[in-house]
Design a protein around this nucleic acid. Structure first.
Lengths: 130, 130
DNA sequence: GTCGCTCTTCTACGAAGTGTAGAACACAAA
DNA sequence: TTTGTGTTCTACACTTCGTAGAAGAGCGAC
């Protein structure tokens, strides 16, 4: 799955931040607003569309072609995606326990508490909406 | 920090697997042996050196220039590196708790047990040898 | 001291991925 | 059918990575 480029990430962030699916033009506006400040430079819509196609190809974005301005949305929630990435990295390791130990060693007390809570509470569920 | 290429990863793996620092030539041999089987093709030493330089530039490898055949070793342990990567990804997320929840949702029972154990035991130590 | 060997640095190139966007095409409304 | 908006095709420059030759540097042998 690998890492994303800057623009790809920006677009994914915009999609993740939006409840409803977005059109390319809407994304274009969102991106301009997001990177606001000094630049104010707007990307060409084709640029946004190209990146969206690439993201769709990578499986990160799904597109609704049934409506005319196509609608784009993230295939999975940001949290899901991030968690998957973390697992991918963990899975590539030979010594999972050791990695987990290090991971916890770097975790903040708050996060440790969160983890404890999560481990105690029923671990059996998935598909919660973000 | 980002992700590594195939050869870069192979070299890091070799360094991580070795107790002592290695020279470029030793790494060259190790890589040949590691990828053994059908290929048997050996990389040019310069290739190994180039990649080592790049890895040094990225901070993943440190080099001892005081001895003649320079000695190369991984800057941090494999587990440390992996854990750092996981934190990097987690840190880039806006909703850490949600990500952690998803992460745990995908974790195997064994790993969950490991985590529980780690969270219960004194979290205060670092620098364990891999 | 300089010859030669080994190791390192410089330089380079091709492939892949990414940011960027124009040109051309498709489709619906007027 | 024309027109405007949205999508696809194509393209190019830049970066990263795998790959390695050519040239330079240091050290031991003679």
């Amino acid at each position: 799955m690998a890492q994303l480029g800057d623009l790809e990430r920006s677009i994914m962030d915009a999609l993740w931040a939006s409840d409803a699916p977005l059109t390319a033009t809407e994304l274009q506006d969102t991106l301009e607003a997001g990177s606001a400040g000094v630049s104010g430079k707007q990307l060409a819509v084709t640029t946004v569309l190209t990146v969206l196609s690439r993201l769709e190809h990578k499986g990160l974005v799904t597109r609704d072609r049934s409506v005319r301005p196509h609608l784009y949305r993230a295939s999975s929630s940001h949290a899901d995606h991030t968690a998957e990435l973390m697992h991918e990295i963990l899975g590539a390791s030979s010594d999972r326990s050791e990695v987990l130990a290090r991971f916890l060693g770097q975790v903040s007390p708050e996060e440790a508490a969160t983890l404890r809570g999560l481990l105690d509470s029923p671990p059996r569920d998935s598909g919660l909406s973000a």
